[in-house]
Structures are given as structure tokens and as C-alpha cells.
Simulated assay, not measured.
Amino acid sequence: MINTKPCWFVGLPALLACALGHAQSTVQIYGTIDEFAGRLTTETATTRSSSTVLNNGGMTTSFLGFRGTEDLGGGLRAVFALETFIRADTGAIGRNDADPFWGRLSIVGLEGGWGKLTLGRHVTPYSLATTLNTPFVGSTTLSPVFAHVYNLNLQGGTRFDNGVQYSLPRLGGFAADFLYSMGRENATPSVDRKRDRAFEAVGSYTTGPAKLTAGYHYINLNNAGDDHDQNAWMVAGTYDFGVIKVNAQHHRVREQSTTIATNARRRTTEAGVTIPVGAGSILATYVRSSMRDASPATPDGRRSFSIGYDYNLSKRTDIYTAYYRDRLVNPMTQQTILAAGVRHRF
């Protein structure tokens, strides 16, 4: 923790003033570095290609963050967080060249007994609910449910710009987050003035070894007045038996507009297990999706699974190995990843 109030004097009064400054305003530096070596293979009905790679972010996309609080008195605190993705294999900023510098998180707000209100670029509650309720927690590379929900499916991505988020204070085992995005902030005369405006709400209830989660997602995709929008709903649950932890989640997505070609309905279901073994855990999950739309170019379904082992060397460092297969059906495309990596949190 870094004291943000410099003290240029000495003696007991100085020590007291520095301690008070530290209590009132603090900044923390944190992050994760995750890299893996592996073999990537892509197949279609007529082609096959493979490559040996050293890539970023097998279990967690690498990032660097700064967050802080200031005590404003009366139980009220100012809060902020700035986080940037890192491609640790090349040293570049962002998940890709299109990412802004503070692409992972960029928020400021207030927090008190009434909850927390923040403004800026947020991680969407729906994406957190998806990635936290799977054995490959937080992974966007080795977790098949993330690919099913966010690749060729849910629109808007895992971050919303121009957002306002309110988080309820914890009430027993209940927690909830609500996020509204202003979208592109187009001027009123534009027929697409509501383009990318979005809303998400996620609630969860934890009692003992059980956790239940429900979420809703909406985004306006209007293009030249075609009334295009998307709605999604999800339910998820986990139960920890001690010797094994089981999880399941189900998503339904409906996309509609005045253009028949963009109308679609998709369903995704995941079932997975986490089995403690030694200082680590065996992770296994299977995901199945059905995809219905008017375009013959898009797949009719998707079948994927991952199995791996994550071993903790310490509280902050782990090593892992995993095999992931993602298969799109009609037309067929298949990708497999065989990975072994190391992750360090600081």
C-alpha cells in the first residue's frame, strides 16, 4: 500500500500525520502475469493447420492495475481503479491493438453503507457471472463457456464504456450489480442515437457450500433504424461437496430486428466439476450450444470441452496444464489447444 500524502517533517507529530494520511488515502498496485506454451490446431472440412506457440493468458489474461480509496468521513469513501491488459508474451499493451490503454477497467465513484456507485469503463456483471461459475474461473482461452457465450453470440463484449454501475451492499448471502451504458452517445437527431446503449443486472445468493446466480443482458444494436436489439438471460449454480465441486449454467439469447437475417435464438448449457487433488485441482467442463438463425453461413451448433490440472506452488503462483477442444457444427470448424503454463499474482 502506498501513502499518497507525503510527510516532509520528522518526529512524533510527523509519524501521527503520516499514519493518518495512510488511513485516509491509499493506493494499491496489483496484477497478474500468465503465460503458456502449447500447440494450437485448427481444422475445417478440407484444411488443417497447427502451430507451436508461447502465448499470453491461459488461465487469466495478464494485466496491471492501480486502485485506491479515500476516507471522506461519515462512512463515505471515494474509490477508483485503473487496469490495463498486458500481452506478456510480447510486452504490448491490451488484448489486441484495438484495446484502449486502460481497457480492462477505468472507474471512479463513491462507496458507503448504501452500496457503491461508479462511473467509467466497467467489466460487465454478466461476463463475471459467466466466468466465475465455471471450473476454469476467469479464463477466456481455456474456458469453453466463455467462447460459447461471447464468440458468435452475445454482443457488446465484456466491457461497457460510458457506464454507470450500482452495487448493493451485501445483505446476508445476497449480492447484486446493475450496469447501464450510455452507448455511443450519438446526438438526438440520429436514428441510431441509442446505438450500443446497454443494461445488465446480476444477482447471486450464497449459503454454505451452495451459490445461485441469475443474470440479464440487453443491448441496443439499432442500425439505420432497423430496431435491432439483443436480450440474454442466464442462471448458474455451484455446490461444493468438499471432495468435489459441481457447477452448471444455462444461457438463452434472443436477437431480433426488422431484418429477418439478423434474427436469432441461441442456447448454451455447461456442466463442470472441480476435484481437489493434492495442492491443486482437476478441472473439467463440457459445453453445448444450439444456434438458430436465417444465415446458412453460421453454425447450427457447438460442442466443446476442457480438462486440466491447476497446481498451487504458493498462494500467489500456480502452474497448469490443459487440453481444450472447440467444435462448431454445420459448417464444421474445430480448434484444439494443448497448453502448459505458469501464473503469478502480485
Rank of each mutant, 00 (worst) to 15 (best):
A248N: 06
G308C: 07
A147M: 12
L212E: 08
T207Q: 15
A37E: 03
G11T: 10
D293P: 06
V253F: 04
D326L: 11
R170Y: 08
G341T: 05
N55V: 03
I86N: 02
T134F: 01
T207E: 15
L76T: 00
D192T: 03
H228W: 10
Y286C: 01
I319P: 09
R77N: 14
T4Q: 10
T42A: 15
T238R: 01
W102V: 10
R316W: 13
L82N: 06
T274P: 03
Y324W: 07
S49R: 12
G103Y: 06
N162Q: 12
R303V: 05
Y216E: 04
R265I: 02
A176P: 04
W8F: 14
L179F: 03
K194A: 12
T188N: 13
N96T: 07
L82F: 11
T158C: 09
A264Q: 04
A78M: 04
Y166H: 06
L15E: 15
A322V: 03
H250G: 11
R316D: 06
I244Q: 04
G103A: 00
A279D: 13
N133P: 02
L105C: 07
R343W: 02
R302A: 08
F85L: 11
V329W: 03
K315F: 02
A81R: 09
S281D: 08
N222E: 13
D71F: 04
P276T: 13
V123T: 07
G68E: 00
A14V: 05
R197A: 00
S290D: 09
T84S: 13
W114Y: 14
A23T: 13
G68K: 03
F80G: 06
L142T: 00
T207S: 15
A176F: 03
A322I: 04
V145E: 01
R267C: 11
N55G: 10
R195M: 13
G73F: 09
G173E: 04
Y218Q: 11
D99Y: 01
P13H: 01
S204I: 03
W8T: 13
P296H: 06
E111A: 14
L15W: 02
S167M: 13
L221P: 02
L212V: 10
G225F: 05
D240E: 10
G58V: 06
P135V: 05
R87H: 11
G203L: 04
A322H: 00
V342T: 12
M332Y: 00
G157I: 07
G225D: 05
T238P: 10
Y239H: 09
G21H: 02
D240C: 03
N312H: 15
M1K: 08
